[in-house]
Design a protein around this nucleic acid. Structure first.
Lengths: 129, 129
DNA sequence: TTAACTGTATTAATATAAATAATACAGATG
DNA sequence: CATCTGTATTATTTATATTAATACAGTTAA
């Protein structure tokens, strides 16, 4: 499914979160799709189940997945009460990074251009639950 | 000068780096201005000199400050060979964060609006060394 | 030159966090 | 019932961050 660098200084569970988020954001994994179980993924990546569990727990807390005991873990539907803390954190991070980029001399226009090349995810409007 | 949260889960040296970068980016501290010495700052913040040293070392590696043994540590002039690794890392981080924000349903226009409200640092063009 | 600064380096000890390991429990499913 | 799922707990090991105590060399001013 993906690879983990056990020697990296960034913790395994964080790497896992990034990779999984990537799959969710790029919509490789879609709403309500089941994630590999804690044990299966642990075996595939040859890392400890507890580490997977930690990553899943965090992703659930951030609103990216939801878990049902006995059934499994699944990708969260996007619009369901976006985590406000997370949104606030992202806004701050964005400001920090753009601030740093501007300081380093990259003109604002270029930053905006970069963002304009990025794709907005397509989404149905009609699916109001 | 600033405050450090020793109980925070983010390492002290990272907090220090953020705070100092903030001062440099907001141009509270200007080119070639001297930073407090390792020992003085350590005493002020009541943390270990080695921790300050670590932060300074990293900031130097990222191109934000330069140190002269026996003299002190100073804010780097901005245009002097921007750290390309760092620029690349910032670009990637930007893409990651904006990607996540877009995924969460914030329209691209709004992200761009936010960036447009940010101030570009003013800089002389004539000072070509 | 001496005294008091500066950054830098090293080595050891301690504290905190991450990761592994071994289980256990309860819900879901066929 | 057997086997899958998530979740929780406790202990141990390993890695990282932090402190501590020095040492050395360059700078600066008295």
């Amino acid at each position: 499914m993906f690879t983990i660098d056990t020697r990296s200084r960034t913790p395994i569970y964080e790497q896992l979160m990034e990779k999984l988020k990537e799959l969710i954001i790029r919509e490789v994994m879609k709403e309500d799709e089941q994630l590999p179980s804690v044990r299966v993924l642990a075996q595939q990546l040859t890392i400890n189940p507890n580490t997977i569990q930690k990553a899943y727990r965090e992703l659930e807390h951030q609103g990216y997945i939801y878990s049902i005991p006995g059934k499994g873990s699944f990708v969260s539907p996007v619009k369901n009460e976006i985590n406000k803390e997370r949104m606030e954190m992202l806004r701050k991070e964005l400001e920090r990074i753009v601030g740093e980029i501007l300081y380093l001399g990259v003109p604002k226009d270029e930053v905006i251009k970069l963002i304009e090349t990025m794709e907005e995810p397509e989404r149905r409007e009609d699916k109001n639950d």
